[in-house]
Design a protein around this nucleic acid. Structure first.
Length: 695
DNA sequence: AATATCAACGTTTTT
DNA sequence: CGTTGATATT
């Protein structure tokens, strides 16, 4: 029973056996934070006799939530399944499904959840329907402003039209009973804050609250935790402010300070079980440069000195990738490494290309993280839209998506007419089919479509298991036939994806309880929140990934590539020391992924956006290296290859009349490439243009 | 409604 | 340089 306690070190055990009162566990990279957190849940259930349903554990990813649940059940037994273990968003769904009508904002408990692509699609349609110039009114811009407004109460709308789009967007969501990802947090918070019934219910229910990856919480998530925990005050959070790399999305590592003020009590885990001393010394030296650290700590290793990390320079981006590939082959053939032990990491996805091509050429098996995720795929969203419509044909949002997929001769004009009619009679588009006042082909097609929906919907009502749904819908709607007709490689993949979706439903059958519709609804909720299919990645292949996407993972061998000042730190981050510190944390996360070998590579020239650049080495390299001089000279000298024959040089700071402050990324043939602050971004300008002043 | 052509753009993204 | 999204063309 206490077997799992004996596997912890003293620091960890102290945290895991902490029962009453708050605790902040400052857990450095590789110090066993998740193990500590799960062990504490098991301890609460097994030793302290707390009932699982009064424990809430919150994480950020579905994967983390699932793994945590499995481990807790392993340790504490099957009844631990009742523990509330959710992502912040999935927790919001639980609360809102129960109480959202108490907000009196028009939402009903059977809301559906839309993802970012859906939200953008709605905004795109609104821009079009308002006859606005899509060059001036950009979907992504407006999406961000809407989010800022909803989530941070910051009004960044430029004019009446933008504000109007926000209002129409919000109206659209409420009318269709849809929630976007922001709503799942904002409304949960609002409910807990303003509605006493909801608040007391959950405050009483959750005697113990645990939060994983606390450094990634944003202000609303913090407030949710605070509201939930203020009664019993048994709030236990685990995190590492030094690994906070999602500040750009609102994560605020200063929640650590808020927690200490509101709750107090901390313990530090700094014994690292992952990396060798040499690797940790790189990490420690680097992160020391950050001024803003709620908790200072040095990670200590018990794995010995190990192998000194290396810094390699290549002549070109192509050479850099080749160098990495050759080293990977050497590690696999001459040492004990498998491909799966190795990761190539870079700052942004655009950099993956060279590496991907090179790995292919060298016949090195690889998997790439990132790209379009499973549930974002068109065919998956289409099939899911069908299923939602079959459950409730009045969901206009999903109805519109499938009305002419596959083609049924119901073109945009007919859809518009139908939509107008529905609006006029205040009914759904589906119901409006019976009231249309136009004739001909379109009318017949619409009625035919209606019969099809009714027929399929009827069939769905007689189903007993989730297993049958996907293929029934995919075939009966004509979707598969449409794909088969296309007959190219892509459509074959799409059919495979639909089959994969079927297996998701088959798996779902084991997880969910209740009658058929209830189980189906739970599965659809889960899917709405899942970004990716987590297929077991057991292929023996190296990983290509951004730094962000490997947080929480570890590899025996890590290549941190493109360590160049024009890329990493990103030039856009060098204006604000706060942004630069976040870049440094990203690098810190990279270094601390490595268990045995760390390679830091860069190139002296690189083709970027069609221009040749001569990037200087990343300042982080100097900061990491065990050389004393680094600490005396903070300013980075410009690259020696740069001659002062031009007006501007890479690294110069400039001021532009329109774009404001910027930093020169490169100069060629009198054209300077300059990175300006958002929203201007990277511009190419004549270097001696009078609008630019060197500062 | 499918295809061609052109201009714009270009961090990171757990949900 | 490549990709993407919005137009123009049959």
């Amino acid at each position: 029973m206490t077997d799992w306690l004996s596997k912890l070190n003293d620091q960890q055990r102290k945290a895991a056996t902490h029962v009453e009162g708050p605790l902040f566990v400052v857990a450095g990279a590789g110090t066993g934070k998740t193990r500590t957190l799960t062990t504490r849940v098991a301890y609460l259930i097994e030793q302290a006799g707390i009932s699982p349903e009064s424990i809430l554990a919150v994480t950020f990813t579905n994967k983390a939530a699932r793994e945590m649940k499995e481990r807790i059940i392993d340790m504490a037994g099957p009844h631990a399944v009742k523990t509330w273990i959710y992502t912040f968003h999935a927790f919001g769904v639980q609360v809102l499904r129960e109480f959202i009508d108490r907000l009196n904002q028009g939402y009903k408990k059977n809301f559906n959840i839309i993802d970012e692509d859906d939200a953008k699609a709605i905004i795109r349609d609104l821009i079009k329907s308002q006859n606005l110039d899509n060059k001036q009114y950009k979907v992504n811009d407006i999406r961000n402003k809407i989010s800022d407004y909803k989530y941070f109460k910051e009004d960044k709308f430029d004019d009446y039209h933008e504000r109007n789009i926000y209002q129409l967007y919000q109206k659209n969501l409420v009318e269709n009973n849809l929630l976007d990802f922001d709503d799942l947090q904002v409304l949960t918070h609002e409910l807990l804050l303003t509605d006493e019934v909801t608040r007391t219910y959950y405050q009483n229910k959750f005697q113990y609250i645990l939060v994983d990856e606390f450094q990634d919480t944003d202000h609303i998530q913090y407030e949710i935790i605070k509201l939930l925990g203020m009664k019993h005050r048994n709030v236990f959070v685990v995190g590492d402010p030094d690994q906070s790399i999602y500040g750009f999305r609102g994560a605020d590592y200063n929640n650590a300070n808020k927690f200490m003020k509101d709750f107090g009590n901390q313990v530090v885990l700094d014994l690292n079980y992952r990396s060798t001393t040499h690797i940790l010394s790189y990490a420690n030296r680097l992160i020391k440069r950050n001024q803003n650290r709620p908790f200072e700590k040095d990670l200590k290793s018990n794995l010995g000195d190990g192998i000194e990390p290396v810094i390699w320079s290549a002549q070109s981006d192509f050479n850099e990738a080749n160098m990495v590939a050759n080293e990977i082959k050497r590690l696999v053939s001459d040492y004990h490494y498998n491909y799966e032990d190795i990761a190539i990491l870079y700052r942004n996805n655009a950099l993956s290309r060279t590496f991907e091509d090179t790995m292919m050429k060298h016949n090195i098996p690889y998997v790439m993280y990132g790209g379009i995720s499973f549930y974002q795929r068109k065919e998956i969203k289409d099939v899911l839209a069908y299923i939602r419509v079959l459950l409730n044909p009045n969901l206009d949002f999903y109805f519109k998506r499938i009305i002419n997929v596959p083609k049924r001769a119901i073109g945009p004009t007919s859809v518009q007419k139908l939509e107008a009619k529905a609006k006029e009679l205040k009914i759904s588009m589906f119901e409006a089919i019976d009231h249309i006042d136009f004739s001909g082909k379109a009318k017949d097609a619409l009625h035919e479509f209606k019969s099809l929906i009714l027929e399929m919907s009827d069939k769905l009502n007689y189903m007993e298991s989730l297993e049958e749904i996907v293929m029934y819908v995919a075939y009966h709607s004509g979707y598969i036939a449409m794909l088969e007709e296309e007959k190219d490689d892509i459509s074959e993949d799409r059919i495979d994806n639909i089959k994969e979706l079927k297996s998701v439903f088959v798996q779902g059958e084991q997880f969910y309880e209740g009658n058929f519709v209830e189980r189906l609804q739970q599965l659809l909720d889960q899917i709405a929140l899942y970004s990716d299919l987590d297929k077991a990645d057991d292929r023996n292949a190296i990983k290509l990934s951004t730094f962000h996407q490997v947080k929480g993972l570890e590899f025996k061998v890590v290549f941190m590539t493109v360590m160049e000042d024009e890329i990493f730190p990103s030039p856009l981050s060098t204006f604000d020391p706060k942004d630069l510190e976040e870049e440094r944390r990203i690098a810190y996360v990279g270094v601390t992924r490595a268990k045995e070998r760390l390679y830091l590579t860069r190139s002296e020239s690189r083709l970027l956006y069609g221009n040749w650049m001569n990037p200087s080495p990343s300042r982080f390299l100097k900061e990491m290296r065990p050389v004393q001089e680094v600490f005396t000279s903070r300013k980075f000298e410009s690259s020696p290859t740069q001659k002062n024959t031009t007006f501007l040089n890479a690294g110069d700071k400039v001021n532009h009349i329109v774009f404001g402050e910027g930093i020169v990324v490169g100069v060629e043939d009198g054209i300077a490439t300059i990175a300006f602050k958002m929203p201007h971004g990277i511009k190419k300008l004549l270097e001696n243009h009078p609008s630019i002043k060197k500062i």
